[in-house]
Amino acid sequence: MSPALPLLLAAILAGVGTYGVLARRHAVLMLIGVELMLGAAGLILVTVGQFDIGQVGGDPLASGAVLTLFVITIAAAEIVVALAVVMAMFRTRGDVDLTGEAQTVEAEVPDETSPKMGEVLG
């Protein structure tokens, strides 16, 4: 079969994932975008591995497949921690909105107290 098909699908998945990361303000939904991007990476790796494009006679190290498995596993580990942090965020703030003001502990500090700037800023 033609390697262009899976590679195109990977490009589409990466683009869609990028859009998802940027367009979502719900933290968990943002994670969905990341998952799609990782999926795209996996698809590229598997495609490259299955068509032994890089080297004549195939890659003896099975780089494509092994890296895909690594990426999947790392992604799982990431998601676990990410969800825990998001839950903590939900507990402390009551929402999981990524566009919300994140920094709430320290009060806004006025700019440097140097007289020159103080005068100008009033």
Binding site: T18, V21, L22, R25, L98, T99, A102, Q103
Partner: peptide, 12 residues
């Protein structure tokens, strides 16, 4: 930079 989401726009 005080919000996570716009930071991601910068990244990508």
């Amino acid at each position: 930079p005080r919000r996570p989401a716009p930071g991601l726009v910068l990244v990508l």
